[in-house]
Write a protein that binds this DNA or RNA. Structure first.
Lengths: 206, 206, 206, 206
DNA sequence: AATGAATGAGGCTTCATTCAT
DNA sequence: AATGAATGAAGCCTCATTCAT
């Protein structure tokens, strides 16, 4: 035990976060218990409380890390000088890839209900919202603002669509006949619609 | 205790299902425990096992009820003779309304991971798939089949989008500045895109 | 369920005993629970109580059957006209074979302490004792009665030795280097000593 | 509750072991449950898990204590300079006395089936085997090694005989007409046979 | 900054048994 | 002769958290 403790060189907080994330990703949310994290990190459960007020605070910290990671990924996809459709597509793909590669991370970030978790502190939500703003920006660039189109609202719609795709994939609800790759491509194709005004043709009634 | 027991004359199974749903709605999945359900219903935990083999079987029964309910709703929205775009829109709205009105059902039906729950028995999945088929049918009617479009795949994409919207609403992740009604309308508007072939031209605005 | 019930043709008591024995032998004592027996037999747990006062009574009945079975086996080995040493050896082997072939049976017959089980009714013990008497008889025939030798006591000593061998085998405590067959043979060889007066040679002190 | 807790100042582990043994002795193995032990010792069931990984680990600890105790007793009986027959007899008696005086230990040490208990860790079996080796040594000294006699095998046969005697006594299966003392003496007398080659001649009395 | 001991609540599940029908 | 509904006790175990050191 002391050897493990030695290895982490004083930065217990860091070690706790790392092991929590590893446990989350490798063994699922149920394995992120104070005891198991402590065991993995080589310290006492009690020690965790010196660095995190309680389990929720630990989870919140993980969520924050996830949000930052996602933000980096999206920033990179959005700040380049590629033309709008490609950039938009790249951002969608970046979001989806992040969700696919970090299932459990993604779930605590976006799937958890306030009921299951003391509410994620409000000030941190702002950080999360930056990601949406990146989507809003590219939508603004593509379609401008009009009475017909609100980029902020559009970004939420887009996000919800991408989120839905990830959510079903994670829950293994997508028909196995379709490869994840195929489904992802169709999802992106559908998301591209948001770059253009709705076609005026069809909806007659209403 | 006997007074409570009196209250549910005879149909304990029904009472268990109802209380489970209520707990699910009011306190979240983690709170649905055999003990709590028993307490809520006014019987022993053991008694639950007379009606359900184990906790999973109880959850599965709820899922099945939800699936049936959803199917009814969608059938009604789909079988009428209204023209395609209206019908399609009606089905989307029916799905969303179902999700909004039955969060407790919806979450166990579509949000739960196989890891959290012994897999939902395969034969029951077939029942669940009927709902997707209704969507596929209307998409087929609207767009036919082509190398560019697979109605079955389209129905999954549609479903995933609607699901994403519900999922974020349930998780209370949608910006409060937007009324749920507004978000729902935009969601449906976006879903309408699937009725038409993707525009071949690149977007015009830059 | 009714088909199974049909199959047993009114003799539920017999079916219960048969399934209990099967469960005992195939799945171990822990699997002999009223519910499991009932499930195996295709009736209600309650029904068992119509035929057996309680679980102990059911176990007692099994024990009795076991005792009878063992008695048959020993009778056959003892009543023939073979000369004493062979007959004696045959009886030992019959006892050991019975124990090897009916592990769980054997354990409820001889291993269970009164603590684990309401005491086996006294009148039934008499039945059990018949088996010892067969051993006593052959010992009497071989060595007669003297101040040095009491056949009844000798039969208990013999029985305890054979029992010890079976008990260790059942508990898988015999060194794996020795084949069960080899160990059994040595056991019998040692048991043969009882046919002869203790050698006067060695024990000097005391 | 605090008064009981007071009583065991500091050594909870010891108290748990002691109370487990007492329960084992007084109520049998089936009654050794985490809850009962906790109640007897005056702590929470949870607390037991601070000292023992699970129920098996607790039982294993008891077994180990028993093994050590038995080894001490046998060592003392075997290391003295008394001549072989006396020494051998002393060891037999020591083993039997240990079993009589420590039924609770003895039963978990030698009676328990792997099915009832996750297998006793292999490395601890080595400790148990030392006891057999003491018997093998004295048999070797008495009879040497030959094609007719394998001291190791002989020690197992001896052990099984002694074990059988104890097992029947514990299960209260020995006819009450015979005093335990008398039965024990006969057992030892029979065990003495192992010190000498089996007589080659067939028994004389018909 | 960290630990070890302890707790109380609660998780799912199985059991033998009873009672009214 | 048989059932179905129900119970209360108990099984093992894990959790987040606290407190004294």
């Amino acid at each position: 035990m002391s050897t493990i403790a030695m290895a982490r060189n004083g930065d217990l907080r860091r070690a706790i976060l790392d092991e929590s994330r590893r446990l989350l990703l490798e063994e699922g949310y149920a394995s992120v218990s104070m005891r198991k994290v402590a065991a993995a990190v080589g310290c006492t459960a009690t020690s965790i409380y010196l660095h995190f007020e309680n389990k929720d605070a630990l989870i919140h910290a993980l969520i924050e890390e996830g949000m930052d990671l996602l933000h980096e990924v999206l920033l990179e996809a959005s700040c380049c000088e590629t033309p709008v459709p490609e950039r938009y597509k790249g951002m969608c793909r970046a979001f989806l890839d992040f969700g696919l590669a970090n299932r459990e991370y993604y779930e605590i970030m976006f799937q958890m209900t306030p009921m299951e978790m003391r509410r994620y502190p409000t000030e941190k939500y702002r950080k999360a919202r930056r990601n949406l703003e990146l989507f809003a920006e590219v939508l603004l660039e593509a379609r401008g603002t009009s009475t017909d189109f609100d980029p902020a609202l559009g970004s939420i719609v887009l996000w919800s669509q991408l989120h839905g795709a990830l959510s079903l994939i994670h829950a293994q609800r997508v028909d196995k006949r379709y490869d994840t790759e195929v489904f992802i491509d169709s999802t992106i194709a559908h998301a591209m619609c948001l770059l253009q005004p709705a076609s005026t043709s069809s909806p007659t009634h209403s």
